[in-house]
Design a protein around this nucleic acid. Structure first.
Length: 927
DNA sequence: GACATCACG
DNA sequence: GACGTACGTGATGTCC
C-alpha cells in the first residue's frame, strides 16, 4: 500500500530506547559467554511491548526505528563544541549497539540510520514527507528537540508515561507553539547538547521574548527596544551565537534518504527470523513469551551448566599458564580472545618508569585459570656474571608479536582489562599501539572501595581472591645485585607474569558486576576509566625543564647554605648536623638551655617550623636554621632532584599521576611530584622559572578560583556566600565583614586574614584548638570565632552534623557526582573518631572539586584537538597547557569554557565556577 | 623502614 | 573530664 491519506506512520527514536533500556536494567550478561546484553534485553522487551500494544483502531500502517550513526554530524562542522559535553558511551554498552539493529530487523521492523545525520533529522524528514502525503505521524520519543515537528497530524508519544504530546502539550513545555520552539531553544540553549544559546536566558524568558516580538529574527532586529538593560545587552552581544544555536537545534527536514515511506509498511514478525535471534541472545523468558504469542515452538536454549562444558574456575594451584613461543601459539590465543570479546593484559618491562622502561613480555588471560606469557626480549642467562645480550631461546620476535597483537589491542569490540592500565597503555603507546577500549581493575576497586584500602594488585588479590600473588622480589633480587625482568629465567617469568594476568581477569569478573549494585557505574565510567588515556597522554607530553637554570640555583643554594652553616656553628658553639632534628633539639634545649622544649611521642624534641618560629624571638640560631632548612629543601627536593628526572630522549620531565591514590578522588603526582613545586615564598617560586615552554610556544595556566569554598557554599546552602560569589566579592573579606560586623570598605588585612583562616578551617572540619594554633591566638578566642561563624552561617553546622550522621549510618560519604569515600573509622572510640569525622566533612568538598576538574580534563582533549596545544599538568585546581604563541587566546577561550562548565550537565551548582588565566614563557610567569 | 620535616592545593 | 586535633598528598634526610 502506498503511503497516503488514512495511513499512520510511527517513528521510534531508537537511541532513546537503548539508553532507557541500558539504565533501567542491571548489567546482565549472556550466560554462556558473559557478553553484556542488558540493554539489548531491555530494548527487545520494549519493542515487544510496543508491537503488542499496536492492535487497536489507532494501529500504525507504517513504522520505522531510527538510530543515530557516527558521532560526527554536520552540526559539528557548524560548531565544534556541539555535544562536546556528552559523556563517553559506557564500555559495556558499546558492543550492544549493533545488536539493537539486528534486534529491530529480527522483529521485522524497518531500521534506518544515516552517516553524518542524527536520528532526529531522519525523523523530521520522514514526518514532513508523511504529513505532505496526507498521513498521520506519531513520534515515539520524549526528546524535546523533536517537539518542533508537532502539529498538522504529527504528535509525539512518551512511551514511558504513555502520554501523547500535541500542540498544546508543546505549549505547556515551551510556552510557544511548535513553529516557534526552535526560536526558544536557540535563546535558552541546552547544556546537554552544549548548545550555547544566550547566557542567562532560560526557557521562560525566551518564550516571553518570542511571544512579544513574534519570532527570533524580529527579536534580534529589535533587540535595542528591550527594556531590561542586562537582557538587551545579552541579545545584542550574542546575536551571532544565538543564530548559530538556532541552526544547531533546527532539524534538517531534507535529509537525503535512500528509501521511501512505502518501504516502511508494517509487517508481521517472522518467527523463523525472530526466534533464532532471541534464542541466540539467550533471553529465556522473552523467547518463550513471544513463541507462545506467535503460536510457534520456542527454540531450546542450552544451559551452559554441564560441568564438562564450563568447569568451576580452577584455583590458582590448578591454573594452566602457557608459555607462548611462536606465532602459531599466539594466533591460537588471539582466536580465543575474539571468541571471548575480552582479555586481561599485563606487560612486563625492564623498569618501573614507563617512560624509560622497555617491553620484555606480554601476558594474556581469557578465563580464570587460563593464561599465558609471551616472552619477547628475555636475555640469555649464563655463567657470565654480567649476563649476555643474546636473546634467550623460546621467544618469538618482538615485531611479529606486536604486529599480531596490535589489531586486537586496538579492536573496538575487544575489551582489554588491566590492573593499572595506564602503565601498560603507555608502554604500548610508545610502540605505536593505542590500546582501547580498556577496563581497569584498580579503578573498579577505587570506585567501589575508595577509602577502605589501597588498590594495588597484592591487596586486591588477597582481599577478594584469598590468594597471595607470587612476589617479584625473589625473582629480581634487591640492592646492587638486582636484576631486571628480562634477566629472569623464562620458566619463572611465565609463572609470575601469567599469574598477574589471571588475577587481573578474576578480579574483573568479580568486581565489574558490583558497580551497578553499589551505584558507582557512572563514577567509574565518567570519572575513572576515561582518565587512563587522558593522563597517559599528559604524562607522555611531559614539560620542558631547563637544566642550566636548576643547576645555577643549586650552586647558589649550596653557597648560601655553607654560609649559614658557619653562622649556625658559631651560634651553637660547635659543629653538628644541621639536617638532624635530633641533634638540633639537643643543642637548643639541652646544651643552650632554651626553655620550652617539648618532646614528641618518640622522646625527641620537636623542632618543626612552628616551634623554631616561636624560638626565633629569643635567639638567632633558630632563625638561621629555618633559613637553612628552606634552602636545603629547595635544593635537595627540587633543584637537584628535578635535574635527575629530565628524560634524556625528550629533554622533558614526565611525572606519573596516580588515579587511585588519594581517597577523595584527587590525583597524586609522583616521580617526580609536580604538584608541590614551590610558590609560596619568592625564593621557592623562582624554581618555576625552570619550567619553560618550547621556542614559539607559551605556557598557559588556568586555575579554578576558590573552587572548594564555592562547593561548600552550594552544598551547605549559604545564601550570603553564594551571593558574594555571584557578585564577585572578595569572599574572605565578606566572611570577615559578616563575622566581625566590619563594613567591607573598612576591612583591614588582619581581620581578613583571620576570616580566611576560618574559611579554610571550615573546609577541613574546624576545631577550636586547630584554629587557635593556626592563628596563634588563645583557644577560647578561636572558639569564639567559630561560634560566631556558625551563628552567621547556620548551614555550615547543619552540613557538618548531617555529613557526620550520614557517614556513621552508611560508612561512607559522597561527592555531588556520586563518588563514594568510605569512612571505616567513623565509629571508632577515642581520637580516631575525631580524625574520621573531620575527614568525612572534608571529603565531599575536596572530592567534588576533584570530580569537577577530572571532568574538565576528560573533555579537554576533544575540545582542544584543533588547536596546536597540549595539556601538560594538573595541580588539583589548576591545569597547565603548552600552546603555540599564535593560539594562546583561542586555547584560553576553549579551555576556560570547558573548565567552567565541567559540572554540566549532571550536577547543577548554585554558584558559578570561575577560572583565572595566566600565560608566560615559564611557569612562574604563567601563574 | 619509621619518623620528622616541609613542599603543594 | 580527658583524649588529641585542621583536610589531602609525596620526597627527602636522619637514625636505628
Amino acid at each position: 500500500m502506498g503511503f497516503g491519506k488514512g495511513c499512520h506512520l510511527h517513528l521510534i527514536d531508537g537511541s532513546a530506547f537503548i539508553f532507557r533500556a541500558y539504565h533501567a536494567l542491571p548489567p546482565l550478561t549472556r550466560k554462556s559467554d558473559g557478553l553484556p546484553i542488558g540493554a539489548v534485553s531491555g530494548f527487545c522487551n520494549m519493542l515487544y511491548k510496543y508491537v503488542e500494544g499496536n492492535h487497536g483502531p489507532d494501529a500504525p500502517t507504517h513504522v520505522a526505528v531510527i538510530f543515530d550513526k557516527g558521532s560526527h554530524t554536520f552540526r559539528n562542522d557548524m560548531y565544534d563544541q556541539y555535544k562536546a559535553n556528552r559523556e563517553a558511551m559506557p564500555e559495556d554498552l558499546r558492543p550492544q549497539i549493533p545488536l539493537t539493529r539486528t534486534a529491530t530487523e529480527a522483529f521485522n521492523i524497518a531500521c534506518k540510520e544515516k552517516e553524518g545525520y542524527e536520528a532526529d533529522d531522519i525523523i523530521a524528514t520522514l514526518a514532513v514527507q508523511a504529513r505532505a502525503a496526507g498521513g498521520r505521524v506519531t513520534i515515539i520519543s520524549s526528546d524535546k528537540d523533536l517537539m518542533q515537528l508537532v502539529g498538522d497530524g504529527v504528535e509525539m508519544l512518551d512511551a514511558m508515561k504513555n502520554a501523547r504530546i500535541d500542540r498544546d502539550g508543546v505549549f505547556e513545555k515551551f510556552g510557544v507553539y511548535p513553529d516557534r520552539v526552535v526560536d526558544v531553544q536557540a535563546l535558552a540553549g541546552d547544556s546537554v547538547d552544549n548548545v550555547p544559546g544566550a547566557p542567562g536566558i532560560g526557557v521562560k524568558t525566551a518564550a516571553l521574548l518570542i511571544n512579544e516580538y513574534g519570532d527570533l529574527d524580529a527579536l534580534l532586529d529589535r533587540a535595542g527596544e528591550i527594556k531590561q538593560p542586562k537582557r538587551r545587552q545579552t541579545l545584542i552581544d550574542h546575536a551571532d551565537q544565538i543564530r548559530l544555536s538556532r541552526d544547531l537545534v533546527q532539524l534538517d527536514e531534507n535529509t537525503p534518504l535512500d528509501f521511501t515511506l512505502d518501504d516502511l509498511e508494517v509487517q508481521d514478525a517472522k518467527p523463523d527470523q525472530l526466534m533464532p535471534f532471541l534464542a541466540e541472545m539467550e533471553f529465556r523468558t522473552l523467547t518463550r513469551r513471544i513463541a507462545d504469542q506467535l503460536g510457534v515452538e520456542a527454540p531450546e536454549i542450552k544451559e551452559p551448566e554441564a560441568p564438562q562444558d564450563a568447569p568451576e574456575a580452577p584455583g590458582f594451584d590448578d591454573a594452566t599458564y602457557e608459555h607462548v613461543e611462536n606465532a602459531d601459539q599466539l594466533q591460537a590465543w588471539i582466536d580465543l580472545i575474539y571468541e571471548r570479546g575480552y582479555v586481561a593484559v599485563d606487560t612486563e618491562t625492564t623498569a618501573l618508569n614507563e617512560m624509560t622502561a622497555d617491553l620484555v613480555g606480554i601476558s594474556l588471560a581469557v578465563n580464570a585459570g587460563h593464561a599465558c606469557y609471551v616472552p619477547l626480549t628475555h636475555k640469555q642467562g649464563g655463567d657470565d656474571l654480567f649476563g649476555s645480550d643474546d636473546l634467550a631461546e623460546g621467544q618469538m620476535p618482538l615485531e611479529t608479536a606486536l604486529d599480531m597483537l596490535k589489531p586486537v589491542l586496538e579492536d573496538d569490540s575487544i575489551v582489554k582489562i588491566g590492573q593499572n592500565m595506564k602503565y601498560d597503555a603507555k608502554i604500548f603507546a610508545r610502540l605505536g599501539i593505542h590500546v582501547a577500549p580498556i577496563d581497569d581493575t584498580m579503578l573498579l576497586s577505587y570506585a567501589l572501595h575508595g577509602g577502605l584500602h589501597n588498590h594495588g594488585m597484592d591487596t586486591l588479590s588477597e582481599r577478594y581472591l584469598g590468594h597471595t600473588p607470587i612476589p617479584i622480589k625473589p625473582l629480581l633480587g634487591s640492592g646492587k645485585s638486582a636484576k631486571t625482568f628480562d634477566q629472569v629465567p623464562l620458566e619463572d617469568a611465565v609463572k609470575y607474569a601469567a599469574e598477574d594476568a589471571d588475577i587481573t581477569l578474576r578480579l574483573w569478573q568479580l568486581l565489574k558486576p558490583q558497580l551497578h549494585r553499589a551505584q558507582v557505574t557512572k563514577v567509574y565510567e565518567t570519572l575513572e576509566r576515561p582518565m587512563v588515556h587522558t593522563l597517559a597522554s599528559m604524562e607522555r607530553s611531559g614539560i620542558k625543564v631547563d637544566r642550566d637554570t636548576l643547576s645555577r640555583m643549586s650552586n647558589a643554594f649550596a653557597q648560601k647554605m655553607a654560609g649559614l652553616e658557619d653562622e649556625i656553628y658559631e651560634l651553637a658553639g660547635r659543629k653538628f648536623n644541621v639536617g638532624s632534628p635530633k641533634q638540633l633539639g639537643e643543642i637548643l634545649f639541652d646544651e643552650m638551655g632554651i626553655e620550652g622544649g617539648k618532646k614528641g611521642k618518640t622522646g625527641a624534641y620537636a623542632t618543626g617550623a612552628d616551634v623554631l618560629e616561636d624560638l626565633a624571638t629569643v635567639h638567632e640560631l633558630p632563625a638561621r636554621v629555618l633559613d637553612w632548612r628552606q634552602l636545603s629543601k629547595l635544593k635537595s627536593t627540587y633543584t637537584d632532584a628535578l635535574q635527575d628526572h629530565i628524560n634524556p630522549d625528550t629533554g622533558r620531565v614526565h611525572t606519573s599521576y596516580s588515579i587511585a591514590g588519594a581517597s577523595t578522588g584527587r590525583l597524586a603526582s609522583t616521580d617526580p611530584n609536580l604538584q608541590n613545586i614551590p610558590i609560596r615564598t619568592e625564593e621557592g617560586r623562582r624554581i618555576r622559572e625552570a619550567f619553560v615552554s618550547e621556542p614559539g610556544k607559551t605556557l598557559v595556566a588556568l586555575d579554578y578560583s576558590q573552587i572548594e569554598l564555592r562547593i561548600l557554599a552550594h552544598i551547605a546552602q549559604i545564601p550570603e556566600l553564594k551571593q558574594a560569589f555571584d557578585d564577585g566579592i572578595d569572599i574572605h573579606a565578606l566572611t570577615a565583614s559578616e563575622m566581625f560586623d566590619v563594613p567591607l570598605d573598612e576591612m583591614t588585612p588582619e581581620i581578613r586574614r583571620q576570616a580566611k583562616a576560618i574559611n579554610f578551617g571550615v573546609i577541613y572540619g574546624i576545631s577550636g584548638f586547630g584554629l587557635a594554633r593556626n592563628l596563634r591566638i588563645p583557644r577560647a578566642e578561636a572558639q569564639g570565632f567559630i561560634d560566631r561563624y556558625f551563628e552567621r552561617f547556620p548551614g555550615i553546622r547543619t552540613y557538618m552534623d548531617d555529613t557526620k550522621a550520614f557517614a556513621k549510618e552508611h560508612g561512607y560519604v559522597q561527592t555531588l557526582f556520586g563518588r563514594k569515600i568510605h569512612t571505616p573509622e567513623i565509629g571508632s572510640k577515642g581520637p580516631r573518631a575525631g580524625f574520621a569525622a573531620r575527614a568525612a566533612i572534608n571529603a565531599p568538598i575536596q572530592g567534588t572539586a576533584a570530580d569537577v576538574i577530572r571532568r574538565a580534563m576528560i573533555r579537554m582533549p576533544a575540545a582542544i584537538k584543533e588547536l596546536p596545544a597540549a595539556m601538560l599538568l594538573q595541580v588539583h585546581d589548576e591545569l597547565l597547557f603548552e600552546v603555540d604563541v599564535a593560539a594562546v587566546d583561542d586555547l584560553i577561550g576553549v579551555a576556560k569554557d570547558v573548565m567552567e562548565s565541567a559540572n554540566d550537565p549532571v550536577v547543577h551548582l548554585d554558584v558559578k565556577l570561575t577560572v583565572d588565566a595566566g600565560q608566560g614563557q615559564n611557569w612562574a610567569e604563567a601563574h
